[in-house]
């Protein structure tokens, strides 16, 4: 390659390399802040600040959702299968909010470790399928479970 062009190529590579390094360092410095939410394990470990607006995200624990009879008050727990964080919220939940589904709640952690949420968002996973397929999948899963139980070697 022509030496002038070679020099320009090196400059181009340097530009890309140095800007990547700069952004990489910036992302490293801000690593905590880029995360949209805290997982329950980090809340349990005391990494989430108390009394400051934060977000906590995880799976809504099956059977943990308690709705009030006469108001929009709702209480539920989210988990990352290592720890649980109770959340109280007053307001309309998104349509896709449900037990066993992902959710992200924004609010303030109180002294008891309960998140007083001001906003609850549903987190969707990457699975897309028609209802019939989901039903069939559910059925085969239940069958597998049944088969495993009769064999006495449940996972």
């Amino acid at each position: 390659m022509h030496p002038v062009r070679k020099q320009r190529l090196i400059i181009v590579l340097c530009v890309v390399l140095f800007s990547s390094a700069a952004v990489g360092l910036m992302a490293y410095a801000l690593r905590g802040n880029i995360n949209l939410f805290f997982p329950p394990a980090e809340v349990a470990a005391g990494k989430a600040p108390v009394g400051q607006p934060i977000r906590v995200g995880g799976m809504v624990v099956e059977g943990s959702v308690q709705r009030s009879e006469d108001s929009l008050h709702v209480r539920f727990e989210v988990t990352d299968y290592q720890a649980r964080v109770p959340i109280v919220y007053e307001g309309i939940l998104p349509d896709l909010f449900g037990e066993g589904q992902g959710a992200v709640a924004a609010g303030v952690l109180d002294d008891q470790g309960v998140l007083q949420a001001t906003e609850v968002l549903a987190k969707h996973d990457e699975n897309y399928m028609p209802p019939e397929v989901a039903e069939a999948l559910e059925k085969s899963k239940a069958q597998m479970k049944g088969a495993n139980m009769t064999k006495g070697q449940g996972e």
């Binding site: 800007s19 990547s20 880029i34 995360n35 949209l36 939410f37 995200g57 990457e126």
Partner: peptide, 26 residues
Amino acid sequence: TLVGTVNIPIIYKSVDWWYSLHQPAS
């Protein structure tokens, strides 16, 4: 443009590297 290329892998990997509301690739 060249300086901005660093953003592309970040977009691709953002849902894996950090906790985000956006779901991973299907």
